[in-house]
Simulated assay, not measured.
Amino acid sequence: MRFSSLVITNDPFDVIQLKDTSNGILVEIYSMGALINGFYVFVNGQLHNVIDGFVSPNAALKEITYGFKSAKLAPFVCRMANGQFNIDGRYYTIGKFYLGDHAIHGLVYDALFEVINLYADEHACSVGLRYHYNGTDKGYPFPFELLVNWKLEANQKVTVTTTVMQQGTVPIPYSDGWHPYFMIGTGIDDCTLQFNSNKQVEFDERLLPTGITISDHRFEQGTLLKDISLDNCFLLDASVPAKCTLSNHLMDLHIQPDKAYPYLQLYIPPHRNSIAIENLSSAPDAFNNDMGLLWLKPNQHYIFSTSYTIKQRNNG
């Protein structure tokens, strides 16, 4: 059979390998956070990981908050001002991780998901993972369930689909996203970036949205990232299919979110070896500024999906 899906270790948590045996493409999924830690493709005869991930599962346990590599972002994304929000005059204060004065990157980035299915046939392979958040954080006492499905198929395409549902009696606020870092064989200064947006979400000095968008046309036709610093959020153009392409002389990484992810957060770390390209359902601090904030209705499914496809370039 062309594709395979199996758990390769369960110490200290389940690690799942998805493989296309026809070309050796490998995808590594950690059940901690349901995150992708590896997407291995052959470049000039050598296997290359396009994910800037962790060196081991134990490293992930210790280091997830250092850069939140590949982290699942839920029930809020990026920064929440002072870790606080209010519903009808009642204030809630997040009790989990803070960067400076602000809560950051949600509550499930280190959650241990359960592997609920493994699937493989001649056309694709996948793993399904489940986590039930039971409302234990005092700042978000609203239970919900997450189902995350990672799928590898032909043409070096990986798709991740998140389904969320809550079973309370009233709607609850929610944002969804991912925080992967990509590296495509060279430093970021040798890469170009293109995506369909001419609107940047304006940030204040705290890196929190002001509530307005500003014009930014730099990336519509693609631009070289050399000398460009990014820790910004963009609103994708809803009138055309969403796409984002990171390219160099070796390969093109195509990212295609569905309409449930209308925001694109970008961050280049100081080492400039990789770039975080984050598909988000809302802007940062949406619990306070309402930019894309969802209200999950009881017993209703909400689905978010994005795909990553690698195309090698023929360099002769």
Rank of each mutant, 00 (worst) to 15 (best):
R2K: 13
R2Y: 04
S4R: 11
D11A: 09
F13D: 05
F13W: 06
D14A: 15
K19V: 15
N23S: 10
L26E: 08
L35V: 15
G38R: 10
F39N: 05
V41W: 01
F42G: 13
L47I: 11
I51W: 04
V55Q: 12
S56H: 02
S56D: 07
A60N: 12
L61I: 14
E63C: 07
K69P: 00
S70P: 01
P75A: 10
Q84W: 01
R90L: 12
T93R: 13
F97H: 15
L107T: 06
V108A: 05
V108W: 01
L112Y: 06
E122D: 15
D137M: 07
F144I: 06
L146D: 01
T161V: 11
T163R: 12
T163V: 11
M165K: 15
M165S: 14
I172M: 07
P173L: 05
Y181N: 00
Q200F: 01
V201R: 00
F203L: 14
F203I: 05
T210I: 08
T213K: 05
I214Y: 02
S215P: 00
E220N: 11
Q221Y: 09
L224H: 06
I255T: 02
D258L: 03
K259L: 09
I275G: 00
N288I: 07
L296R: 00
I303T: 14
I310V: 14
Q312K: 14
R313H: 14
N314W: 07
